Amino acid sequence: MGDRFELQKLLSLYYSKEEVIYVSSLLISWSGSSEEAFSWLNEPIPAFGNMTAIEACEKGLSEHILTYLKQIENGSFA
């Protein structure tokens, strides 16, 4: 796994088309590649009790992950 299409396909399970574009673009710009974006989605996030972003989305918390990403983008601490 590692291309932008695969990343967007995964994100489409949890987000609208517009949100998929936003999240995938943001993660790729931060991490440098689709492959690294996949890695981030599977790393524990302390703010979510060490759940990964994918685990949080699977538990119905996709909007919380989206808010988290927007806060980081706007300069808040992760």
Score class of each variant (00 low, 15 high):
residue 77 F to P: 00
residue 37 A to W: 01
residue 22 Y to E: 15
residue 8 Q to N: 06
residue 30 W to M: 12
residue 76 S to L: 08
residue 35 E to S: 10
residue 2 G to V: 11
residue 21 I to A: 15
residue 20 V to R: 09
residue 38 F to S: 06
residue 50 N to V: 01
residue 75 G to M: 02
residue 67 T to F: 09
residue 70 K to E: 12
residue 37 A to C: 03
residue 31 S to F: 09
residue 7 L to H: 08
residue 57 C to G: 09
residue 40 W to A: 11
residue 10 L to E: 11
residue 67 T to Y: 13
residue 76 S to R: 10
residue 74 N to W: 05
residue 74 N to S: 15
residue 2 G to K: 14
residue 47 A to V: 05
residue 36 E to K: 08
residue 27 L to K: 02
residue 21 I to Y: 06
residue 30 W to I: 14
residue 60 G to L: 04
residue 78 A to H: 01
residue 10 L to Y: 00
residue 46 P to V: 05
residue 59 K to M: 12
residue 41 L to N: 01
residue 12 S to K: 14
residue 73 E to G: 06
residue 65 I to W: 02
residue 46 P to S: 11
residue 16 S to D: 04
residue 14 Y to D: 01
residue 58 E to Q: 12
residue 61 L to Y: 05
residue 34 S to K: 02
residue 58 E to T: 07
residue 69 L to S: 05
residue 62 S to A: 07
residue 56 A to H: 01
residue 10 L to I: 10
residue 14 Y to K: 00
residue 40 W to V: 10
residue 29 S to Q: 13
residue 4 R to M: 04
residue 19 E to I: 04
residue 31 S to C: 13
residue 28 I to Q: 00
residue 56 A to D: 01
residue 29 S to M: 07
residue 72 I to M: 14
residue 63 E to L: 09
residue 33 S to K: 03
residue 47 A to S: 14
residue 73 E to K: 15
residue 65 I to E: 01
residue 56 A to P: 00
residue 30 W to K: 15
residue 64 H to L: 13
residue 78 A to P: 00
residue 6 E to R: 04
residue 42 N to A: 10
residue 71 Q to H: 10
residue 55 E to Y: 07
residue 2 G to Y: 06
residue 70 K to Q: 10
residue 24 S to A: 13
residue 40 W to K: 13
residue 57 C to M: 12
residue 56 A to V: 05
residue 49 G to M: 08
residue 46 P to N: 08
residue 10 L to P: 00
residue 70 K to H: 15
residue 59 K to A: 06
residue 38 F to E: 03
residue 75 G to C: 08
residue 38 F to H: 05
residue 67 T to P: 02
residue 59 K to H: 13
residue 45 I to N: 09
residue 5 F to S: 14
residue 11 L to M: 09
residue 31 S to L: 07
residue 32 G to T: 08
residue 14 Y to W: 06
residue 37 A to D: 03
residue 46 P to T: 09
residue 23 V to D: 03
residue 6 E to S: 09
residue 18 E to Y: 12
residue 34 S to V: 08
residue 21 I to D: 11
residue 15 Y to Q: 06
residue 18 E to L: 12
residue 36 E to L: 06
residue 68 Y to G: 02
residue 39 S to R: 15
residue 23 V to C: 07
